[in-house]
């Protein structure tokens, strides 16, 4: 079980923060000639290196603005790091902002195939998982209706059902799994637990040390873009609780 699923090597991410956001040509040309195109550098991540083994469940702790979302985006391949490299093995399913890839004018059924294709799966493969997805999200009566008429809970349920049905090898879970109503929450937690048992690799972002202790075996703390602590979940959670305690003083 010591094959790495994710390897980050000296990853740094720098943003150019502009004082005002310029998004049109007119302003850009005016500012350019006035010499007002100033950027200030902001390092969201600095020299992050770690390895996540296959089947490992890593908790990522940190205050707001510590760089957690940036780190997840870099791992998911959405952002390319300024320096350093990211290596991933296996299919990755981000369980964050579920249903973000839906087309609002498309029906639920059509969106299942579109979302599946976004993750790189064929129509045939999704067809074989179709019944499972449908029975899991319990939207049988609405599946032919356009997604724009769905409630946000229904959308999240559909998104969760698709993202977990395809047997991803790496799961990115953001914050509490507050999907849908209480009944669906129990169901989705059971689903996640069963994926844990199958040995899926998990990245879990949270503020809640109890959840991290319960779900993860290892953890790291991010602060101002750096890893300031890493180790087993219990050790790291203790450090984090101390940090919270100190900052309250």
């Amino acid at each position: 079980m010591s094959e790495p699923a994710i390897v980050l090597d000296n990853v740094s991410m720098m943003f150019n923060l502009n004082k005002e956001k310029i998004d049109n040509l007119k302003e850009y040309i005016i500012k350019f000639f006035k010499g007002q195109l100033n950027f200030s550098e902001f390092w969201a991540l600095r020299d992050i290196s770690f390895t996540v083994e296959k089947g490992e469940r890593l908790g990522i702790l940190g205050f707001n603005g510590a760089g957690k979302s940036t780190l997840l985006k870099v791992i998911a391949g959405v952002m390319k790091p300024t320096t350093g490299t990211v290596k991933r093995e296996g299919v990755l399913a981000p369980l964050l902002e579920l249903g973000a890839g839906f087309d609002m004018n498309y029906s639920g059924r059509e969106n299942i195939f579109l979302y599946g294709a976004t993750m790189g799966y064929s129509r045939k493969y999704i067809q074989s998982k179709y019944d499972e997805i449908l029975s899991f999200c319990e939207l049988e009566n609405f599946i032919e209706a356009p997604v724009k008429n769905y409630s946000s809970g229904m959308r999240a349920r559909l998104g969760f059902a698709i993202a977990t049905a395809v047997d991803p090898e790496i799961l990115i879970v953001d914050e509490v799994l507050s999907v849908g109503d209480a009944k669906f929450r129990i169901k989705s937690e059971a689903k996640i637990q069963s994926m844990f048992d199958k040995g899926v690799t998990v990245l879990f972002v949270s503020h809640n040390t109890d959840q991290v202790r319960r779900l993860c075996n290892n953890a790291i703390i991010l602060d101002h873009g750096r890893i300031i602590a890493s180790g087993t979940a219990d050790e790291v959670c203790e450090i984090y609780e101390e940090m919270i305690h100190n900052s309250k003083k």
Binding site: D103, N105, Y106, L114, A117, T118, G120, R123
Partner: peptide, 21 residues
């Protein structure tokens, strides 16, 4: 090649949506 399914889905979607309503 890996994302050929996505390419197909988006092409079909564009054509369908354009005339749907």
């Amino acid at each position: 090649y890996k994302y050929r399914y996505l390419l197909r889905e988006i092409v079909v979607k564009n054509i369908k949506i354009q005339y749907r309503n």
